[in-house]
Design a protein around this nucleic acid. Structure first.
Length: 782
DNA sequence: GGTTTGAAACTTTTT
DNA sequence: GTTTCAAACC
């Protein structure tokens, strides 16, 4: 027996050597599943399987990258021809090669959710749908779910017969799909769906790939949706050497179409499947693991398994409830400080996890304040930022001019004086002549209604064709510089000179770096391959374990990661589990999904787990008062260091009748101050003193700005009044002589009350008459 | 055609 | 509290 199996436990060994036939590897958190997968690959190679025939699919580029690295490390030569990729990039690679068989062009563009929204807006406008009643987002959700379930526009239409609303949705779906095709674009869901369609309908393609992928492994199988399952099923058909790895307790992407039954019913799909459970946890202390087990045990409908560990009991779980989110953040920051300063941990040993991205703001402020290096994962994707998308849109148009969304994005960025009226005329012309928007632009001179506006369009068309020429005899980086140069994009931002503009310039610089890095790493880099990579990256992919910073991210983003010190912030009912899940029609199911999320959070911790909650917190501008999360209460008190108040009543009474926090809600109706610790909002705000005081003291504008970010109030202040807001009386009057820093001395000829400020007219000796606002001019009486 | 302003939506999670 | 989008204004 080879040394490949050395150091593995019995179950892991079984997972490695059971190479033939379907295998379900139920891998609890921290049970070493990646280890099994990489050893399995090594084992396959040792058995004489060609690397070319092995495939491993993951969800994120980060996971794929890690697996690739570990495989390389273990195997070395030959490993590069093993197919390790995400679902989406796998499908892109298949489609780039064969999508022409489905009537698409192989140089298709990939639309992100932003592009989808823009496209949907156009569709709704065209179909005269009142988006006040039917939201674009709703249609996109409907379509996305349909695609996840492999329902084509035609089938959707058939199923909708007799139902007015559904028929309308079908109409939108058809139009949306038609436009995608006309733009030569695919959305994320199309990537999977069309790959499946191709494999289903084209025996030649199917044969090619299933012969190529003779041994298939799928990571995070609990997160696959119906389309992804179908893809895997097709590829594995025939040999059925399919090994899926997952943990039903960590299924947290139902909202994105993940079908938990893919894993729960795996044995049903493949009756001969071998099921192997990995239950030994190598990651966490006994106490942390026990807590996780106790919490998840409250879920029904799961594959029963109990994680155990040979690790020490470790510290108890620390729980702290604070008056406010402000104090909570303060505590977390100072606690991290202590860990680093006194206990020898590094910043990157610490992670703060929360339910919603909105919670990151307060935490970020405290990190800045305490000088703690940090990185926020999630929120706005780098490639979704306006300036980045603008530049990318130029690149996209150079690559695929049929992409109307990209063309429209940049046609008037920077301003070329081409307005909505002109664009409408071009659109009409394009529709009448059945050509793309861009083609219509190239024929602007032939559109009579345009008149003089045609002259404004010509330079744009010229720019694109010049840029294309530029690319032909240069690099992507060269093209990038060219575009920055001729559009004056960065120049304009420099002139703006605001902190915000500086931030945007930094992002553009960052984009430049990414392009250069891409070209350095890939010898055969093309514009298309760059754009493709860019459209398939997730924020989590940018996480670098070697950099010493604290990571702030959502619980969803944390899946698959581990840290010695984990902070679970905002553990409050209504926030986590979310208000939506508590009030949903299928609340039981939704709460179970939230509980799985809690389980994911707890099991990220290796050594220390700190759970925090706040009694009150600002949500959407107003105060919300919350009880400690039910999930915290599901942890046995002997595992906890800290006091968790238990409610007198069960939660299932609250939330519905008079709304959140009304006196009909949970807890005692006498409100805050009762020993239960649960207050109705009416009760709490009765003690207005503390809340009011706190509000002004803690949430004031603060003396620092966040990496160029400013609050709206600060921006307003900066823009209109410099540093002072109050309108002060003037110590000079008409006829007085005053002096100005730049213009020198002059005589005041008029003073007008302009509302918030005075408008002063001065006749300067050197430069003549100037009008200015008093608070800006800072005139001094001579 | 461009800019400013106020109202309304948003916040559960995202490849 | 912040962002987005349209109407009103320049």
């Amino acid at each position: 027996m080879s040394d490949i199996l050395e150091g593995l436990n019995e179950q892991q060994k079984e997972g490695v050597i059971t190479t033939e036939g379907p295998v379900l590897l139920l891998a609890g958190a921290g049970s070493g599943k990646t280890r099994v997968l990489t050893h399995r690959v090594a084992y396959l190679l040792e058995q004489g399987v060609a690397p070319y025939h092995i495939m491993a699919i993951t969800f994120t580029n980060k996971a794929a990258g890690e697996m690739r690295e570990r495989i390389n490390h273990m195997i070395g030569f030959g490993a590069e021809s093993i197919w390790v990729a995400t679902f989406h990039s796998t499908c892109v690679r298949i489609l780039r090669r064969y999508i022409d068989r489905l009537g698409y062009d192989t140089n298709f563009t990939i639309y992100d959710s932003d592009d989808q929204k823009t496209l949907m807006k156009d569709v709704c406008k065209y179909l005269e749908i009142d988006t006040k009643i039917h939201k674009e987002k709703m249609f996109l959700n409907v379509i996305s779910s349909a695609k996840d379930e492999l329902i084509s526009p035609e089938e959707f239409t058939n199923r909708a017969l007799g139902d007015y609303n559904k028929t309308r949705q079908a109409q939108v779906y058809r139009e949306y799909q038609a436009r995608l095709k006309a733009n030569n674009a695919l959305d994320f869901d199309d990537l999977i769906r069309l790959a499946v369609e191709l494999l289903k309908n084209d025996p030649e393609v199917l044969d090619y790939y299933r012969n190529r992928f003779q041994y298939i492994m799928v990571d995070e199988y609990q997160d696959t949706n119906t389309a992804q399952f179908e893809l895997v099923r097709l590829l594995a058909s025939g040999r059925e050497n399919l090994c899926v790895v997952g943990d039903d307790d960590q299924s947290i992407y139902k909202f994105r179409g993940a079908n938990i039954y893919n894993i729960l019913n795996f044995e049903h799909h493949y009756p001969e499947a071998k099921v192997i459970k990995l239950e030994q946890n190598y990651r966490s202390t006994q106490n942390i693991l026990n807590a996780a087990n106790e919490v998840i045990a409250n879920n029904e409908g799961r594959k029963k398994k109990t994680l155990w560990t040979a690790n020490d009991a470790g510290d108890k779980i620390r729980f702290e409830q604070f008056e406010s989110a402000y104090e909570e953040a303060q505590f977390i920051a100072s606690n991290i400080r202590t860990r680093v300063m006194r206990e020898g941990y590094h910043y990157n040993d610490c992670a703060v996890l929360y339910r919603t991205n909105a919670q990151s703001r307060m935490l970020e402020e405290k990190m800045v304040h305490d000088n703690i290096p940090y990185k926020i994962v999630g929120g706005v994707n780098f490639y979704a930022r306006r300036e980045v998308k603008d530049i990318l849109a130029y690149l996209k148009v150079v690559d695929n001019e049929v992409d109307d969304i990209a063309v429209r994005r940049i046609i008037n960025v920077p301003k070329r004086g081409i307005g909505a009226a002109s664009l409408n005329k071009v659109t009409l012309f394009a529709a009448a002549n059945e050509m793309s928007f861009y083609d219509a632009l190239t024929k602007a001179g032939e559109i009579p209604s345009l008149g003089r506006a045609a002259k404004k369009i010509e330079p744009f068309v010229q720019l694109i064709s010049d840029a294309r020429e530029h690319l032909a005899n240069g690099s992507i980086a060269g093209l990038f510089e060219y575009i920055i140069d001729v559009t004056g994009y960065v120049e304009d931002l420099q002139l703006e000179g605001t902190d915000e503009a500086k931030g945007r310039i930094e992002n553009i610089d960052e984009l430049r770096n990414k392009i250069i890095a891409f070209e350095t790493e890939h010898e055969d880099a093309t514009l298309r391959s760059f754009l493709e990579e860019v459209s398939l990256v997730a924020d989590i992919d940018s996480l670098d374990e070697n950099s010493d910073y604290v990571v702030l991210m959502t619980l969803h983003a944390a899946k698959g990661l581990e840290f010695p010190n984990v902070y679970l912030a905002g553990m409050e009912d209504g926030l986590f589990p979310s208000f939506m899940s508590i009030t949903a029609d299928d609340s039981d199911q939704e709460i179970e999904e939230e509980r799985r999320l809690a389980y994911v959070g707890i099991t990220r911790a290796k050594e220390h787990l700190t759970i925090t909650a706040a009694k009150m917190r600002m949500v959407r501008g107003d105060m919300q008062y919350s009880a400690v999360s039910r999930f915290v209460q599901e942890i046995p008190s002997e595992l906890i260091d800290g006091v968790v108040y238990t409610p007198k009543k069960k939660f299932d009474v609250g939330y519905d009748a008079g709304g959140y926090g009304s006196s009909t809600g949970y807890g005692s109706s006498t409100g805050y101050g009762s020993s239960s610790g649960y207050g109705s909002s009416a009760g709490y705000s009765g003690s207005a003193g503390s809340a009011g005081l706190f509000g002004s003291a803690a949430y004031g504008q603060g003396g620092f700005s966040l990496k160029g970010k400013k609050t709206q109030a600060q921006k307003y202040q900066a823009k209109n009044f410099g540093t002072k807001i109050e309108k002060k009386g003037l110590d000079y009057a008409v006829g007085d002589r005053v002096s100005h820093v730049k213009f020198g001395e002059g005589e005041v000829t008029a003073i007008n009350d302009g509302g918030r400020d005075y408008e002063v007219t001065v006749d300067f000796d050197r430069v003549g008459v100037k009008k200015m606002f008093a608070s800006f001019a800072k005139l001094k009486k001579c």
